[in-house]
């Protein structure tokens, strides 16, 4: 038989755990439900397909959607080769353990730096020093630095799962290092690259502080290359401006609902991808 004291301890601990987990669950459900209830009624085809007009007084978020898309594309185009290359250096080339730990420490430092600081340095370096002005390109390049550690880490992890015996087999046939990497190592890290992409897209979609001073607030409708060189608000920045500075909460919630749906989609696809590759590895 358990003593009274022990029973009380167990009971208290269990209760506290139930309450904590329940709170967390309710919080998530409330957030999703609230944003959807407030936001979905405001989503209309007109909102999604037009740009804001002072003449008609109507608001459209098409430019913000396109800007977000452009930023995602531009960021990924740069960050994937850079991150994958860095990971390959670390797992395949680097022999000096000191150097490896310095690089890994730097990557950890980068992932701990708050986005507002990225925004500031991005503004100083890309917008002013390199002369890109406030533009989607400057915003994207800022996000490249932010997401570099993510792509690097996921690629590195999947490179580690490529069996050493594949490399030995290829070297044993007289293949040079680069050929070994290209033919037997790189195909093995596809899952890491895809996971890195999904995580990065999630971060890019949710980012606002780093874009505020680098990409700006404009709502002009542009093509891809024109867009990259001009300022533009992403969905998150647009949400902020509509809510905080213009008090247009309907539009803000519509954007919030869209962002919430995208977040759900990204989490869902991340799970799918990891399940798919886990299954493939078993075969």
């Amino acid at each position: 038989m358990l003593s009274k004291k022990r029973k009380a301890y167990i009971g208290t601990m269990k209760t506290v755990m139930y309450i904590s987990t329940g709170l967390t669950a309710m919080l998530v459900i409330f957030l999703v439900a609230y944003v959807f209830i407030k936001g979905i009624p405001h989503i209309s085809w007109e909102l999604l397909s037009t740009k804001p007009s002072y003449i008609s007084g109507k608001t459209g978020i098409l430019p913000d959607i396109l800007n977000t898309l452009y930023i995602v594309i531009a960021t990924l185009v740069f960050v994937i080769p850079l991150g994958v290359g860095a990971a390959i250096y670390l797992t395949e080339y680097a022999k000096n353990k000191r150097l490896v730990s310095v690089i890994e420490y730097a990557a950890e430092t980068l992932s701990g730096i708050p986005s507002i600081i990225y925004g500031l340095v991005g503004m100083l370096f890309f917008c002013q020093f390199l002369g890109f002005k406030t533009s989607l390109l400057a915003g994207s390049l800022t996000l490249v630095i932010m997401n570099l550690p993510t792509v690097m880490r996921t690629t590195q992890e999947s490179l580690k799962t490529v069996p050493q015996s594949y490399r030995d087999g290829a070297f044993g046939l007289g293949a040079g290092k680069w050929r070994v990497i290209r033919t037997v190592v790189l195909p093995g890290c596809v899952n890491g690259v895809i996971t890195g992409c999904i995580l990065s897209i999630g971060r890019i979609l949710g980012e606002s502080a780093a874009l505020l001073f680098t990409a700006g607030f404009a709502h002009a409708l542009n093509g891809f290359f024109e867009g990259l060189t001009s300022p533009g608000a992403s969905l998150t920045v647009a949400l902020y401006v509509y809510a905080k500075e213009q008090g247009e909460f309907g539009v803000a919630f519509a954007i919030a609902a869209i962002l919430m749906i995208l977040t759900l989609l990204i989490n869902f696809s991340a799970t799918l991808v990891s399940r798919y590759f886990a299954k493939k590895r078993e075969l």
Partner: peptide, 29 residues
Amino acid sequence: LRREIGMVFQKPNPFPMSIYDNIAYGPRT
């Protein structure tokens, strides 16, 4: 040198490719 002095390892280590591509890997290299 490794082309002229080949190696077979303790654990079979075919590449995750087709049988054909495995054999052709060396000549292609």
